[in-house]
Design a protein around this nucleic acid. Structure first.
Lengths: 194, 194
DNA sequence: GACATTGTAGGACGCGTGTCCTACTCTAAC
DNA sequence: GTTAGAGTAGGACACGCGTCCTACAATGTC
């Protein structure tokens, strides 16, 4: 049914595990268990654990790009696109509730590990940032577009962190609603022509 | 000059290291180096690494309480007290820039480790939350006080996360300014009588 | 059938870890 | 001077880790 290689399976399993357990706390044995593969066999696909991390980050970059493109095609109005992003908090609530934001938590961990790939990991943030900026530019906020993008990014990030600490869905819902209202208030312009 | 016990020194060093390197990534050897103590000697003061973590959390709870009391005595107006909290982002910028928020990052890490002390760690958040709520109540926001408290908490948390990823001080300053303005806009009431 | 290629299994290796033990030093009490 | 207790040093221990090696199975090519 699937033409996925073993390598793909490893990267996917690592992606999930890094998100749920953290990078450092996830061992080769954990991934091997998840993929149902011999532990020693890893070396054929990846020389080091860092290589797996890089592959995971690549995967996340690819998936994020796809998601952004989907939002762009599904929603014509930039404000609605931004809302798609904001609402991801609720869409993925069952995971965020326990493990927070995959992007933020990985960046935070890699920073503390002083890991070589921390810049690479932050590119996922940059992807969102650039995309959000573009949407705000389309909304006519040329000058403040980047500040707005960062603002939204930070908001979501904070809510995700608190959400995973307190597991409080009501709070998340309220914040998302508020954020959407804020978006509407700063977005009284009409649909711009792309 | 100081009457601090070796135990105190261990807890302080662990506090710093847990913040900068993360809990898991900090070894007994690291702490021993920092305190200039024999590695094996730890066992006399702490039976397990978890015990050190609990002591660190206790220390943070104590220090946080002290800080909140100081803010309360230094600033009479609740809005100014909240601003003291918001401005901690800039006060501790040199650390936050690299390591994010000590509270949030520890909670996040312990969640991923599924560590027994994650609830204990979240009490530091709760400390801030309760205190902020109290300030908002004093400002006359009885009904929404807790939502406001969570909102501020989340805001700061998000900015700290992004700040430590992008090391962008301008962004932090702008957000703090914005937050202070927001505080003033929702705080047109006069100084309440305590 | 011989052979190279690709992928897999299983385990060896060295290292760092948290934990724990024992021997030693210092101080104060009597 | 002897003794008890608090504090320290150094290292042993078992374990899990990332890494790496070798032997084997499956597949396709000539």
């Amino acid at each position: 049914m699937s033409d996925k290689t073993t390598r793909d399976h490893i990267v996917e399993a690592a992606d999930h595990l890094f998100y749920r357990q953290g990078y450092e706390h996830t061992s080769f044995a954990d991934i091997a268990d998840a993929v149902q593969i011999s532990r020693g066999n890893f070396y054929y696909h990846f020389k080091t654990k860092d290589d797996i991390l890089d592959a995971v980050i690549d995967l996340r970059l690819t998936n994020t790009k796809k998601m952004l493109e989907r939002w762009e095609s599904e929603e014509k109005h930039p404000a609605d696109r931004i809302k798609s992003y904001v609402r991801i908090l609720l869409t993925n609530w069952s995971m965020i509730k326990y493990f927070g934001c995959p992007v933020g938590t990985l960046c935070t961990e890699l920073t503390k590990l002083n890991h070589a790939s921390q810049e690479e990991a932050s590119k996922v943030f940059t992807l969102f940032r650039t995309w959000l900026r573009q949407q705000f530019i389309l909304l006519g906020h040329r000058k403040d577009a980047d500040a707005f993008a960062m603002h939204v990014l930070a908001w979501i990030q904070g809510v995700a962190t608190l959400a995973s600490t307190f597991h409080d869905e009501k709070f998340a819902r309220k914040e998302v609603k508020q954020m959407c209202e804020w978006l509407e208030s700063t977005t009284q312009t009409d649909v711009p022509h792309e």
